[in-house]
Amino acid sequence: MIEAAMIWNEPNNKSHWDPELDPEWALFAEHVIRAGEAIRSVNPDLPRVLGGMSPIDPHWLRRMEAHGALDAVDVVAVHGFPLDWNLWPLSAWPDKIAEIKAVTDKPVWVTEVGVSSFGAEEVQVFGLQRTAELLKGRAERIFWYSLFDLPQSWGAETRHREAEGSSYYRHFYLGLIREDGTPKPALDVYADHAADVGLMQWFHFHDPRLDEAVAWMKRLGTRRIRTGLSWADSFRPGAIEWFDRQMEALADFDVTVTFCFTPEHLGLAPHHTSPARDPQQFADFCAWMVDRYASAQPRAELAASCAPLGFVPRAPELTPLDFNRDERLAAERSAA
């Protein structure tokens, strides 16, 4: 089901990784290295994607290279929203891609790009059409963010929320379909590019929009989807049932799945943006998900290849808590 595995989301954006806890991104690099090795051991052919940069920053990418993180990935990714947040014009997209290609020989994917309809829906129509013209042929993968508007009651993942003013509220208007389920004018424009431009859609835990999203994407002719499987959510009751339902619903698409969000009890700080106290536990999660949804090896061979890395691949009938997590949590509680 999985076409590619992305390691984290926007790690150079403080809304998704805490730079006060990891100012040099050395801990993040360790997460990438361990996760990349774990994914490779489960499925050597599955492309590993470095979480999309936001902002697009060649200096940050060089820092990742210096830490050795680029040796553990096959693709680097960028995110851009020039009509809403970035301090560069829409027409600069080719230059932004070129900046990254100048410092790495790895493929560059655009795993999030979007335009909100906050000011006017006509702006989104123009932005989608022009973005497709600028990026098609320059990036092997392009994912438009997103299919659905973010419901107002859910809240956006930013640090300062309403204090950000219109920058915060733009998060809620990036979909091609309004919160009430009606399509925006840009939806027809997207349909013209659906064969070449995928969709990026986060699905919240037990997201009621999942089946509706699949129906819309099939109707539009979308071929590729990017979404996420949350490490933090894996500790919720019923997590594996939800993960299975989500991935089964997306089985007809080529899926780039993003692994991210630190469980509060496993972070240096109790927040999903925190580095894990033990990065190997994040690697374990990535290996478990790839084993479950994109394994390339029989389980006997998989167990032997995984043993040197220090994790045990999970069998399909087991839940997240069945693999040493009870013991780990008990040890953490005792240490506390």
Rank of each mutant, 00 (worst) to 15 (best):
D149M: 04
R170Y: 03
S166Y: 11
A132T: 04
G127E: 05
P151C: 11
G127W: 12
Q152P: 08
V125A: 00
E179I: 03
V125E: 12
R159W: 04
E121N: 10
S153C: 04
E122S: 14
S167E: 14
E133F: 02
L128M: 13
R159G: 05
G127D: 00
L135G: 03
H171V: 00
E157G: 04
Q152K: 15
Q129M: 09
G127P: 03
R159Q: 10
T131M: 05
L135Y: 01
G165E: 00
Q124R: 05
A139L: 07
G165H: 10
I142V: 04
F126Q: 11
E162K: 14
I142H: 01
F143D: 00
P151I: 13
S146C: 13
E157A: 15
Y169K: 13
H171I: 00
S166N: 08
Q124L: 02
E162F: 04
F126V: 14
L147H: 07
T158C: 01
E164V: 08
A156T: 08
W154C: 06
G165T: 07
H171F: 11
A132C: 13
V125H: 05
Y168L: 00
Q152G: 07
L135P: 03
R138W: 09
E133C: 08
G165Q: 11
T158L: 07
Y145V: 13
Y173L: 09
F126S: 09
L150Y: 08
D180H: 11
W154I: 12
I177G: 06
I142Y: 11
T158R: 14
